[in-house]
Design a protein around this nucleic acid. Structure first.
Length: 858
RNA sequence: GGGCGAUUAGCUCAGCUGGUUAGAGCACCUGCCUUACAAGCAGGGGGUCGCAAGUUCGAAUCUUGCAUCGCCCACCA
């Protein structure tokens, strides 16, 4: 056992604890143990930069639960993962090293990534795919070391032997085997179709990764004419897509346009003849009620095109620029190819924003109308703001561009996935609505392919026909036992490497999987599926998934979907949704807003325990504004706990070490001990509902009662009493309660609790077990009555401006029953110097009334 | 447009399976160097629980409507 230091210095305590916990492997999970497991599906933080106070907040809440469960005798399996595959990492690597990936380059084994100054370094250096991946690995490795150090400083009770990284060979193998399993079950398919496409990253994105942003736009009112010369005016926000117009539609019930249905309209500038058709989705009240359908202006265009059998007029390239088109060679694009080419050449190579401006100018020119008389757009565009779809990590609006992608079938399983959500306990329960809402609103299957580099490759190839074109209809899948496999370097069975990219040979699928395709398997990464089926059966479904609410539609949803597809089971029994940290202006903290608070200086100034105290005060799902004064409160309580502990040690230093409940012979000590039990029972009740904040309230209340009242009442007896029984009883009360407080505080303030515990007992408090449902035959009444009198004595002294130590005489008016209780214990008050010469008067009162006066001098 | 949450003391938040004078911390005021702690301790002031109806013997708590703030989803010509 170690003595407490003279002063509370959190840095010393933390350093010592981190070392001790590491050395003694206090938090290791042992699959051989018989205790019931408690398995946590820890969120793997995205490794792209640094952690901020919001991470500290939510991870603390999980750790508090983990520590509690461990002290309840559970075999806690608490891993840590790093989500290092995917776009955020690529983007950061591009910025930090000033490079970009050019897959056509060959590997340079001598190249080493070097950090650059982004202000001086304007152009990025292209490197090969393998060099790029190596740069990603190097940077993420560096970040992960920093993350681990921070988590250890925070005191997360993670088993660091259970660390994974989503780009590791093991995770890649799992991710690929998951894909092959889904393929085997008929749940995946590839399809060439218009899908959401980010023109900057040049990759497909999934529905879950899109967000709407309010953007400035403008209605352009453009005159079309029918082949019979009748005019009609359409309204559009995307005039640049005029060359891609395939039809004009209006609502079938719209009487204004009913006569036009079946007729043919001619587009201005491009002279394309397009049908005028009825369409349910046209809103008569919006714009002019009649609109052009393009390939593709929005999701509605896509849906309508798919059922229309009309030709595709793809004008936008994958880079978001108007691609080269020869109107002579594509007669369906225009009936007046020369005129169309003239107009189109001005758009060629431009992005939508510029093209929009150019086409608006062209349409506003005299003679731009179809008939050649007047302007096709006589009025200037009418500015509006409207929601536009973006990739959540992107900077340009998404386009719908036809590409071949791999999909996982979700739409056929919506009902089942909804039901799976019902089987999970959501905390707080209203968060389940977010999930149900999302599942009900799903309108696309999960697009899992990404045209990127730092990710898990698809384990497949395509045979090439005699012309060297890939046969996408008959992909060659790798065998599960071959995973992890990179089809860019591995050769499919039945071929040899010389046939790569040759006619009648094969080619690799170059895409990588969506990062969520791997992240959605975090439970399986830990459980060891599919290799370690025994462990998987033991751990699955997990006990707890902690996460934040903005990724319910991605991480939670995909994890639930995969667990259903692979195991017909839920991934975890409970999901705990943490709130957000808001800045003092109540705005969400995020890197893009630049209002992020990094935690290290807070650790130095206030201690890890103080930060944890602050995080533990917030209930699940409740957003919390960042307020530095809260850390000060934590620090104050820690100092108080340290001082109180030191004082208790002074009081009990001459007592035997084996003090136990049988030494509690005095009525006040017995009564207080009962109060401790009542408090702890509530503490455990709260924790059993994962209400750690409520549990903290309980232990804190107990702590303050202990300091303000119990210690005050027994300290004199503990060191002055002549009767050894009386003295031992006080000492036992102090020691036993301090132990309970150490345990009760341990999940929240693990460092100081460990330090204090180390002065009382052998071993770590974090491996100690709570003793539940202690029952006490003693009433708490005695203690409560004494506190009542004590408070009145203090009030009296305060009002009379008397020092606390001035003794007073008191006459106590109370019921006879209370008199019996009080007289048995008032000695404590007298001993503590609060009262002398107590006399009683029996009165018919429902409370205790104390009349006091100072002891006359002399 | 659909859904969810919040609204309680100057501030941050508990309380909400209906039940005595609505709680805590911070801030504020008064006093106290008391043999753990002055970064401390004791005491005190401060709230018609967002608004309006309803159910009830009784509503911060349940129902309905409204307002304000925030979030999720949908719409996207």
């Amino acid at each position: 056992m170690k003595e407490l230091p003279k002063k509370y210095k959190h840095a010393d305590i933390e350093a010592a604890c981190i070392k001790q916990w590491d050395n003694e492997r206090i938090y290791s999970y042992n699959s051989e143990k018989n205790e019931p497991p408690f398995v946590i599906d820890t969120p793997p933080p995205t490794v792209s930069g640094s952690l901020h106070i919001g991470h500290v907040f939510s991870y603390t809440q999980t750790d508090v639960i983990a520590r509690y469960q461990r002290m309840r005798g559970k075999n806690v399996c608490y891993p840590m993962g790093w989500d290092d595959n995917g776009l955020p990492t690529e983007r950061r690597v591009q910025q930090v090293y000033g490079i970009s990936c050019d897959p056509t380059l060959s590997y340079d084994p001598h190249w080493k990534p070097a950090k650059i100054n982004p202000k001086k370094h304007k152009h990025s250096t292209p490197v090969s795919r393998q060099n790029f991946i190596e740069a990603c690995l190097e940077l993420t490795h560096e970040d992960e070391k920093a993350f681990e150090a921070l988590w250890k400083n925070l005191g997360l009770s993670v088993d660091w032997n259970l660390t994974y990284s989503t780009i590791s060979p093991q995770c890649q193998a799992l991710s690929q085997r998951s894909f092959l399993d889904l393929q085997n079950k008929g749940l995946v398919y590839s399809k060439e179709a218009p899908g959401m496409w980010d023109i900057d990253f040049q990759t497909a994105v999934a529905q879950a990764e899109c967000e709407d942003r309010e953007d400035a736009g403008a209605y352009h009112h453009i005159h079309f004419e029918t082949t019979e010369g009748k005019k009609l005016t359409i309204a559009t926000t995307r005039p640049e897509l005029l060359p891609a117009c395939i039809a004009v539609v209006a609502h079938p019930d719209d009487e204004r346009y009913q006569p036009l249905f079946g007729k043919t309209a001619v587009t201005p500038l491009f002279g394309a003849e397009v049908p005028i058709l009825p369409a349910e989705h046209a809103d008569p009240d919006k714009g002019t009620g009649i609109l052009m359908v393009c390939t593709f202006g929005d999701a509605m265009d896509v849906a309508w095109w798919q059922q229309s059998n009309l030709a595709l007029k793809q004008v936008l390239g994958r880079n978001g620029c108007f691609q080269d088109i020869n109107f002579e060679k594509a007669p369906f694009l225009s009936n007046h190819p020369t005129q169309a080419q003239d107009a189109y050449d001005q758009l060629k190579g431009k992005r939508c924003k510029q093209a929009k401006k150019i086409i608006a100018e062209l349409l506003a020119q005299e003679g731009s109308a179809v008939s050649g008389k007047g302007k096709a757009m006589p009025n200037p565009p009418e500015p509006i703001t409207h929601p536009v779809k973006y990739f959540e990590k992107g900077d340009s609006p998404l386009e719908f561009i036809p590409t071949r992608q791999w999909y996982i079938n979700l739409l056929d399983h919506k009902e089942t996935l909804l039901k799976q959500g019902d089987k999970i306990i959501w905390q707080p329960s209203f968060m389940k609505n977010r999930y149900s809402n999302w599942v009900e609103g799903l309108n696309q299957d999960w697009c899992v392919s990404r045209q990127r580099f730092f990710g898990v490759p698809f384990p497949l190839w395509y045979p090439l026909d005699e012309k060297g074109n890939p046969r996408h209809d008959v992909p060659i899948f790798a065998k599960p036992e071959q995973c992890p496999i990179d089809p860019m370097t591995a050769t499919p069975e039945g071929f040899n490497e010389s046939q790569r990219n040759q006619p009648n040979g094969f080619c690799a699928e170059a895409d990588v999987m969506d990062t969520w395709a791997t992240s959605s398997l975090t439970p399986q990464i830990i459980s060891g599926w599919p290799e370690n089926d025994e462990q998987h059966q033991q751990l699955f479904p997990f006990d707890l998934r902690p996460q934040s609410h903005e990724i319910i539609r991605t991480w939670a949803f995909y994890t639930i979907a995969k667990a259903w597809f692979h195991h017909n089971d839920i991934p975890w029994k409970r999901i705990a949704i943490s709130g957000w940290i808001l800045d003092p202006d109540r705005k969400k903290m995020s890197k893009s807003k630049g209002n992020v608070v990094t935690p290290q200086h807070l650790f130095d100034d206030y201690s890890a325990d103080a930060i944890r105290y602050w995080a533990s005060k917030a209930r699940l799902g409740v957003d919390t504004a960042f307020d530095e004064s809260m850390f000060l409160i934590g620090k104050k309580i820690l100092t108080k706990f340290f001082n109180a502990s030191k004082f208790v040690f002074m009081q009990i230093q001459d007592a035997p070490k084996d003090l136990n409940e049988s030494h509690l012979t005095q009525v006040l000590d017995q009564s207080f001990w009962s109060l401790v039990q009542e408090n702890m029972n509530r503490y455990h009740e709260k924790f059993s509902e994962f209400d750690y904040a409520g549990a903290l309230d309980e232990i804190e209340t107990l702590f303050w009662t202990f300091c303000d009242h119990y210690i005050e009442l027994v300290k004199t007896r503990a060191y002055k009493a002549t009767d050894p029984k009386q003295k031992l009883s006080a000492q036992a009360g102090l020691r036993l309660t301090l132990k309970i407080l150490c345990q009760g505080f341990a999940p929240f303030m693990p460092f100081l609790s460990e330090q204090v515990w180390g002065s009382l007992e052998e071993g770590s408090v974090h491996q100690s077990q709570f003793i539940l449902s202690r029952t006490s035959s003693h009433s708490t009444e005695h203690f409560k009555r004494v506190v009542e009198v004590l408070t009145q004595v203090r009030t009296y002294k305060s009002k009379e401006n008397l020092s606390i130590k001035v003794p007073v005489t008191a006459t106590i008016h109370c019921q006879d029953a209370h008199k019996t209780i009080l007289s048995a214990v008032l000695e404590d008050l007298s001993l503590a110097g609060h009262l002398t010469k107590v006399s009683f008067k029996v009165a018919d009162l429902d409370h205790i009334d104390v009349k006091m006066m100072p002891v006359p001098e002399g």
